[in-house]
Simulated scan of single mutants.
Amino acid sequence: MSREISNLSSLSDVARFDPLGSFEDLFRDFRQAPLGRWMEGRQAMKMDVSENEAAYLVKADVPGMKKENIKVDIDGNKVSIVAEVSDSKEEKDGETLIRCERSCERMQRVFSLAHEVDAAHAVAKYEDGVLALTLPKKNGKEARQLKID
């Protein structure tokens, strides 16, 4: 055994030996799995929520979406924002699609507020990738899907 150790040029050669591959390689392989690719494509919807005496004000980042692809549902104090777009794959003569990362995107955020929302008077506006919601407070429960201006 001492003969085998003497053949190593230094202790750093032992430290470099890794029979399982690098720790980084392990996770790179995991990210390449179908579930890993699915998770990488998903984006978290970032938002700010503020409140005054009369209403909640919500600003949510929904970049790259058209207002037609955004759905806001209100049910009592529960608010759901879903934005989904699915681009069709365009094929051109003489071109081969090598990688497509823009074909389908979905963002979703569901949250509850301390007070119920007056869905009949709620307002949604979408401009420059930001969805702005004005959600008036109400006593009682009413469900409604908002039209985005």
Rank of each mutant, 00 (worst) to 15 (best):
I74Q: 01
S86E: 14
R99G: 01
R109W: 08
A120M: 07
S112M: 12
K67T: 02
V82C: 05
C100H: 04
V85R: 15
I81C: 10
K67I: 01
I74P: 02
N69W: 09
R99H: 06
E68T: 14
T96S: 08
E84L: 04
K92M: 11
R109T: 04
Q108P: 00
A114K: 14
D73F: 03
V117E: 01
M107H: 02
S88E: 13
S88T: 06
K66S: 15
E91Y: 12
C104T: 13
I81R: 04
C100S: 13
V82T: 15
C104S: 12
K71P: 03
D87K: 06
R99P: 00
D73A: 12
A83E: 06
A114F: 08
V82Y: 04
D87I: 00
E105K: 09
L113Y: 04
D73E: 12
E84P: 03
I74A: 00
R102H: 03
V62D: 01
V62Y: 01
E116S: 15
I81F: 08
N69E: 15
T96C: 01
D75Q: 13
V62R: 03
K78Q: 13
I81T: 07
F111L: 10
E105D: 08
D73Q: 11
V82S: 11
H121K: 14
D87R: 04
V82P: 03
E116H: 11
V82D: 15
V117L: 03
E105F: 07
K66G: 14
F111Q: 05
S103P: 00
E91L: 12
N77F: 05
F111P: 03
N69H: 13
D87C: 00
A83F: 08
E105G: 04
Q108T: 08
K66Y: 08
V110S: 13
S86V: 12
G76Y: 09
E101Q: 08
D87G: 06
K89F: 05
K71Y: 06
V72K: 01
D73I: 02
V82F: 07
M107D: 10
I74H: 02
V85Y: 12
K92Q: 10
G64P: 00
V82R: 15
A119H: 02
E95T: 05
K89Y: 04
V79Q: 00
E105Y: 07
N77Q: 13
R102I: 00
D118K: 07
V72E: 00
V72A: 05
R109G: 04
P63W: 06
K71E: 10
